[in-house]
């Protein structure tokens, strides 16, 4: 009984950590630029895919991971420069469609480069499960959790302790004021996209040994990252991660105790419910329109 519960909880936390990081990536870009980046899931895909093929080509894992992160960061910057910057003042509908278009482009390129099949990465430190109170835990799950803690800590340190990080926070709070004190807004926006891509790719690298990856993995991941965001409260980085973990847990328990067929539906229904029941609460901007 307990063993089963632990088993579900562990797998929930593992995928939840990834949802949380996707949500964190959303938050970074949204706070800095007001853009909801629908290509967020594609960063996770890039991380997994590039690592898989680099390792397949004989590159050692740490180097392959580094390459993947660099590729993702470049894609993030390109996305911001080529697709977002030229339409910066466009209405939200246009920005949404642009990022959806960007997601299709990234996915299309991935299909051509890596093919449409599933890709798997071998576990970082063997696949012998560790026994814990009767539950068996994959070493890779521990990698994912430790990696998530590390990523969140690094992002926090970067935002709060470095000048660049503070400039990013300042830009999020008030773009005009940030510009007036001499912050290079265009650079900061590119930075937000790069950073967001980097953490997304990192999550992709960590989780690919468990979940596989394929060119179209991004849509559902982005959607679940968004669900995590809605659960945790838009705009709060910590809330995003907590929302991700909550979502992962509810998904794992629903799949374990109810039905695994509609595992993916849990996140979507949960998100729609929260959106509809607390439109002002969690989103927090109802009635604040200036007229």
């Amino acid at each position: 009984m307990l063993a089963q519960f632990l088993q579900f909880a562990m797998s929930g936390l593992t995928v939840g950590a990834v949802y949380g990081i996707v949500a964190l990536g959303f938050t970074l870009i949204y706070n800095a630029s007001g853009v909801m980046n629908f290509a967020q899931g594609e960063f996770v895909m890039i991380g997994g895919m590039v690592t898989v093929s680099a390792v397949g080509a004989g590159v050692p894992l740490p180097l392959a991971a580094l390459i993947a992160v660099i590729v993702a960061a470049s894609v993030g910057v390109l996305l911001q420069r080529l697709a977002i910057e030229p339409v910066r003042d466009a209405p939200p509908v246009v920005l949404i469609i642009i990022t959806v278009g960007a997601a299709l482009v990234i996915r299309g390129v991935a299909q051509i480069v890596f093919g449409k099949q599933l890709h798997k990465l071998s576990d970082f430190s063997g696949d012998t499960p560790l026994a814990f109170l009767g539950a068996s835990i994959l070493p890779q799950a521990l990698w994912v959790l430790a990696g998530t803690v590390l990523i969140v800590t690094l992002v926090w340190l970067f935002l709060n302790l470095t000048m660049l990080g503070k400039a990013l926070i300042a830009t999020s709070a008030n773009r005009l004021a940030a510009k007036l004190v001499g912050i290079n807004i265009s650079f900061i926006l590119a930075l937000a996209f790069a950073l967001s891509a980097v953490i997304g790719a990192a999550a992709g690298i960590l989780v690919t040994p468990i979940t596989f990856t394929y060119a179209e993995v991004g849509t559902l991941l982005a959607l679940k990252g968004f669900a995590a965001l809605v659960l945790g409260g838009l705009g709060s980085p910590l809330g995003a991660v907590i929302g991700g973990l909550l979502l992962g847990l509810s998904e794992a328990f629903a799949a374990g105790y109810l039905s695994s067929t509609y595992k993916d539906a849990v996140a979507l229904l949960l998100m729609i419910a929260v959106l509809l029941l607390r439109p002002g609460g969690i989103l927090g901007h109802a009635g604040a329109e200036r007229v």
Binding site: L82, V100, L104, V105, R107, I112
Partner: peptide, 8 residues
């Protein structure tokens, strides 16, 4: 790819 490029 083409669909995405076209949209952008």
């Amino acid at each position: 790819l083409l669909l995405g490029v076209l949209m952008i």
